[in-house]
Design a protein around this nucleic acid. Structure first.
Lengths: 256, 256
DNA sequence: TAGTGGTCTAGACCACTCG
DNA sequence: GAGTGGTCTAGACCACTAT
């Protein structure tokens, strides 16, 4: 006797999972990594239904809470979808990497687009009121202002203006040419945790047009960001303008 | 004898928490709601340190995993920051509501900005290849095209173009004038789960300029989105263009 | 060294979905 | 009614941080 396969009920797939209890990597994370790899490699095709949590736990030699932790991790990432009374499925959608707390430099480098940086300014200045308010610096105190142009190959891509409290980190022009700002902050022991961003658009000013090889009034994508570290201090405020013809933001939203 | 307050070590605050075990609301969620309310009301000021998890669990009459679940929920929302060996603090940053799987209509209504909708088109069409590919519809089959202008008060704000598979939902022009598309989909039993978005900018075409009361070439903010339901089906594809002078996207990033 | 969050277990009962 | 995920408990041990 063969079992009837119900229509519309996707097949249950059982990828091989092996956890290493001697590893310093948490068990839930090992499981999540292996499931994610199976999904990205197509072993678990979109729409595939996973085993239920109890069975999966037993087969992996893990407790159910640990398995749930792993699955929740992938649900948060947008790779799996759970429904009570139904089961867990691999999503159909191709998931993009969400906007993260990485700098443009890191993003470009990761995409293999050879970022290059030209430093226009690196000097302490008396901040405008808006900047001082965002950074929460004492009245009358200076902040570090940083203006850069970011290129990919020979093409200018963006003008980046950033402000840092002076006690956060000492950065040099040479370092800025070779690394992203966020990487330099991390090396200086700054743990970024939260950032508020606003994304908008406007026409290029004459100065921006000159720097970006565009016409005055050309549409630019703007991003303004204030970033905070793990102690809640504001550690960076910046305004970036991107050539709309060369750049856009991609993100994946997951309903919680 | 008074205790020494260590410099840089924020005070520990203990808000009153009462959970109702008879409520259908999960205990972890009740706790999270009360902590969130205390934070938003200023009872728990930015930078305040929470009690440790074991004490908080004991004081609330809950187990530690349940308390952890509540705290993790608020960490994910960007309201709290945890650090091993240190503790849990209220973030300094003012947290914005992130971009969610809500429609522009819902967003404007929530902000009290009186959205109004004009329906330009609501008809089945043979989709372009790109649209058919995003929606995964069968070759040769029609999809519903939907074009609307969204106003706040008397000001045009955005032109919205959306495509729906024809079997997803039956929407009428009258419903579209009074509700957001996503609300109508939810009412039709569609559970939105994941969306891929791209945000960019470009200059207005002549037709867009006329509809939006802007000049040709004026900077517009663009958002293209494909949304998927809880079964992984693509249920909506849309391109929205916003007047950059009147609209921007605000979001909060949380490092995981 | 003391205190914190991070991980993990082995159960239990409940709510929801579907045939 | 059978199967699924959602919630919850009462512990345990570990890794990291600060002093």
């Amino acid at each position: 006797m063969s079992r009837i396969r119900h229509a519309g009920r996707p097949a249950v797939q059982q990828p091989v999972v092996v956890v290493d209890r001697g590893s310093p990597v948490p068990l839930y994370f090992q499981l999540a990594q292996q499931l994610e790899a199976a999904i990205r490699d197509g072993v678990l095709a979109p729409g595939t239904r996973l085993e239920n949590e109890v069975l999966l736990a037993h087969r992996c030699g893990l407790s159910r809470p640990t398995v749930r932790h792993a699955i929740q991790h992938l649900v948060d990432k947008g790779l799996l979808v759970r429904k009570r009374g139904v089961g867990t499925q691999v999503v159909q959608a191709q998931v993009r990497r969400p906007i993260e707390l990485t700098s443009l430099y890191d993003d470009l480098a990761a995409a293999g687009r050879e970022p290059r940086t030209e430093v226009l300014e690196l000097a302490p200045v008396r901040p405008e009121d808006e900047v001082a308010a965002e950074l929460g610096t004492a009245p009358g105190s200076d902040v570090l202002r940083l203006r850069r142009i970011r290129f990919t190959g020979a093409e200018p891509l963006a003008v980046l203006t950033n402000y840092l409290p002076r006690d956060i980190a000492a950065v040099t022009g040479d370092e800025l040419r070779r690394h992203g700002l966020y990487e330099l902050l991390r090396r200086a022991g700054v743990n970024l945790r939260i950032a508020n961003q606003t994304i908008g658009a406007r026409g290029a000013t004459a100065a921006e047009a000159r720097l970006l090889d565009e016409r005055r009034g050309a549409p630019l994508l703007t991003m303004t960001r204030t970033a905070y570290d793990d102690k809640g201090r504001a550690v960076e405020y910046g305004t970036h303008v991107y050539r709309a013809s060369r750049y856009s933001f991609a993100l994946t939203l997951v309903e919680r």
